[in-house]
Simulated assay, not measured.
Amino acid sequence: MTKSQRCLSAVALALVTMATAGSAAADEYIFKAAPQTDINRVYRVNRLTGEVGACQYALKDNSVGVTLCYATGEGAGPQSEPGDYDLVASSHEREGGIFRVNRRTGEMSVCYVLPPDTVVCTPSSR
């Protein structure tokens, strides 16, 4: 293999590595809207750690508004075991919470915003 072929191979390998890393990073979070029809809240979960967060839009005088994101509270932080976490919204139109599910173990918990400003989750169960 010539020097220029080796260089091209190294560049190609670097590009493949970057593309793979970028695709993995893009899949790190899953987002799901709360099923409640009169709020504009969106939840996110880290697929590997299970950490849950939530944000929503709020009006602010003389501006286009603000994005309010809630702190992670009890049970909503990273879980003790890595998993393959996802979010599932119920079909209940008045439900402001969302289910965090671990696709590897089948465990579920319910996460919601506890007023005034914290995302919390119930203990996981099967």
Rank of each mutant, 00 (worst) to 15 (best):
S4E: 15
S9E: 11
V11A: 13
A14P: 02
L15C: 15
V16Q: 05
T17K: 01
T17E: 00
M18P: 00
M18D: 04
T20N: 07
A21D: 02
A21C: 11
S23K: 14
A25K: 07
F31V: 07
A34W: 01
T37M: 14
T37D: 11
D38S: 11
N40H: 15
N40V: 13
R41T: 15
V42C: 04
Y43Q: 04
N46P: 05
T49K: 08
G50L: 09
G50T: 06
E51M: 12
G53H: 02
G53S: 15
G53K: 10
Y57I: 00
A58M: 11
L59M: 07
L59F: 14
N62E: 15
T67M: 12
L68K: 09
L68M: 08
C69F: 03
C69T: 05
G75V: 02
E81S: 12
G83E: 05
G83C: 08
D86I: 13
L87Y: 05
V88L: 10
V88T: 05
A89M: 03
S90L: 05
S91A: 09
R94G: 01
G96D: 05
R100G: 02
V101Q: 01
N102D: 15
R104M: 14
E107I: 05
S109G: 13
S109Q: 08
V110R: 13
Y112P: 01
C121M: 03
R126D: 11
R126S: 10
